[in-house]
Design a binder for these strands. Sequence first.
RNA 1: GCCCUGGUGGCGGAAUUGGUAGACGCGCAGGACUUAAAAUCCUGUAUGCAGUAAUGCGUGUACGGGUUCAAUUCCCGUCUGGGGCACCA
Length: 939
Amino acid sequence: MPNTFLGSIMEYTFRDIEKKWKQYWEEQQVYKVSNDSKLPKCYILDMFPYPSGAGLHVGHPLGYIASDIYARYKRLRGYNVLHPMGYDAFGLPAEQYAIETGQHPSVTTEKNIARYREQLDNIGFSYDWSREVRTSDPSYYKWTQWIFLQLFHSWYDKKIQQARPIEELIKIFEKEGNSNAPCPTDSSFCFDGKNWKNYSEKEKREALMHYRLAYLSFAEVWWCEALGTVLANDEVVNGVSERGGHPVVRKQMSQWFLRITDYADRLLDGLEHLDWSEAMKEMQRNWIGKSTGADVRFDIQDYYGKHITVFTTRPDTIFGVSFMVLAPEHALVSEITTTQQKQAVDEYLLYVKSRSERERMSDVKQITGCFTGAYAIHPFTGQQLPVWISEYVLAGYGTGAIMGVPAGDSRDHAFAKHFELPIVNIFGKNYTGEDAYSEKTGVLDNSEFLNGLDLAKATDVAIRAIVDAGAGRAKVNYKMRDAGFSRQRYWGEPFPVVYIADSPYTIDEPQVTEYPELQHLPVELPVVESYSPGPDGQGPLANIKDWVTTPAGPRETNTMPGYAGSSWYFLRYMDPHNSEEFAGKAATEYWRQVDVYVGGNEHAVGHLLYSRMWTKVLHDLGYISFQEPFKKLVNQGMIQGSTRFVYRIRGTNKFVSSGLKKDYETDELRADVSIINGLELDTEAFKKWRDEYADAEFVLEDGKYITGALVEKMSKSKYNVVNPDDIIVQYGADTFRMYEMFLGPIDVSKPWDTKGIEGVHRFLKKLWRLYFDEQKGWIVTDEAPNDQELRIIHKMIKKTGDDIEKFAFNTAVSQFMITVNELSTLNCHKRNILEALAVLLAPFAPHLAEELWHGFGHESSVVNAVFPMHEEKYLTENTKLYPVAVNGKTRTELEFSLETDQSEIEKAVLADETVQKWLEGKTPKKVIFVKGKMINVVV
RNA sequence: GCCCUGGUGGCGGAAUUGGUAGACGCGCAGGACUUAAAAUCCUGUAUGCAGUAAUGCGUGUACGGGUUCAAUUCCCGUCUGGGGCACCA
């Protein structure tokens, strides 16, 4: 075999090899995917990244490498594989950076993307870059806006559990009002056909707003007076703004919402058929938080016709109520608070305004609240119940009010104890007086007609009684709330909305048609000079008069949130250059769902729920024929950083090695991982690292400076970031890819350790030497393989296939090492074995595999090779060395044929010398024999 | 606080369905080759005790219980690391 393709150097020269084949792939367009193929399809998708200014660190590509291996494997198995990549390019950090540096987000984003691309290309992915999408590209967000229009023009028909066009709802309203399509947010809002016809245009639109899937309503945001802007949760730290530490308060603002709650049941039920981890499904179930119970109405004393409605999952405990608690934001608070209590309530409200929802839920030990002075009336006993407000009741959950049942709920119990409110024991002996009894077993007491009833059965009886008394109804409640869809920001999709007489109209509505210039999609984000917030908490767009002002009326100045563009991007990859539709029907019908979706589990609820909702909406409206976006989901864990510490003797510029630090009073400081080899600090590099350390002195141990180490999140500020580019320069992309996979299971977090990569690199060099000799060059022979060699390669074939299917890449890499070790020991250089090995290697180390593949004389890329088949006959063994245990402890090993039956084995085992010794003359009770596994003698 | 998830040698990790715990790699120690180094190769490496040794016996998968002939694996409780909790993406 000629070895001219490599010149005379016969070492593993990964730099040349990788450069050569990257160029070849590019020239041959081997990763270009067609929508027109007879092959079965497979759609493998990575969660696209937000292109941050910091670039990729070694943690980011973990999932990308895994999906790339899977994608390459599927191609070898004969699939037409769609494996695209793009950028989630809108987001807060770019805008923040713009505020700080004055650079336009589109400029910095462009720069960051170029950097990401360069880093991604380094790693040798098989992406079809001709399909790249960017959410901030007008040709992309045109369709994000278009989907928003569909949401605006649709409502959810509960009867058929499907979204329908809003025109159909208008026809229903004209005919019969809303009796058959009750208002999703306010069941008391009723009208008939006649009412409808008499409504003004404005009233009609307000009524419809209660039904639209994208609608305008009010929500609280963090408002910072000093900065004159709305802040993200992230930007609020310990109750003050992160920038400047200014005070912040919750403030009501007009916001767009998506009516995701209408889809709650379908989002819940749809989980059943998804190939996602149980944990991930469970998180979504908890987020949706479906619970069944009852709405119960309590009249308010001295306020005729006013009542407090509570949602409870425990109507069976209705006789245990001894007080009521409203959320501080509850609309009734201002109405029912008595003059005597007003000051106290106002003070309490002020306190609550500064508290985040998180704090309110977390601080269970700190009990706060305030009496309103008002009383509610128990619907059965007529008893007076004091009405309190407290931060532990959240306005957004249920009805924003609860009935206090101290004997049955631990928070109510703590509240009653703290404020010395009465506790009614309705559980007999089960309630001890110490803690609430929250089990659902036992019998009720002190509960009138429920007395003696089993708790499990009492719920239905109680609900019936509540309904009969006209005091409420059975109710299903969801913890999930509608999704806030407005951001007071610049760097996001503008809404295709204008306000006419203060009412929002989308640009495709008839009222706007007289202004054709307004009807154009996309509504492009205007170029701005400044990113400072607009007046009254509006976003920066409000400052651009030219843009805001249109002949029809002012534009909406909010922009869409980060998840808008990412909720449907997987559809765009199918047909990324389509200018007529978000994606053509032929394309969506061919590619359909994503077969495997790989990404971090931090997206467990947000992104994954919104994508599922958008897919269902597009399905309901007839645009696509499937209703789940991601069939199988694989979550990758994080690669953590390994931070290094140096110890400075207090008040000096002298640093003491880790082992000696106990002798001094020291300060622990982070040092950059790049100037530390293992644990040993390069003291000269350290001096150069920062000016302040230029004349640092060191106290060494054994002539070395040993640093301290800690595993934590990889981040720039912790100086523990490792850049894949550096690793690739030193070891090559193939080593990097295999090492990332070798680190451990894909789904768990593990620390990065640059030292360990040597092992994988050594392995690739060892593999190389099966094919090449340093002096002789290509040494593969046509000699026929023997049985032992065949067994090795077939075991390898089976293991690789099985492991890739399971996403168990770490064990696949181990198996490669075992195989190469075995073949090296056997001095095997046979084509029959090594050609198959090269193909198996292709998904993991594509550059090296391509080199080897061409070494065999192939003209086409290994990407298009065929994955070898394993043959069972090489895998079956006919004898087994059984571990033999006495009373569960392994004492010896005996070899038997797999055909040997139990009685024969028993005989042989009991005759064995070692077994005899451990039996100590006793007769065995029984012998447990598991064929192919083990033998256990029980005495 | 609530929800999800992890905890196995000095380190990353392996272990079909409950069936020989520690595969593979790093690190470390010793050796070969070399003037030397790098590279490469070989040997050993959970731990305690006994033994010159081969080896033998005991302990051991965060901790405490339980089920089982047999538990890293199943059940109950405790401790602890990580992620999410609705405007970071």
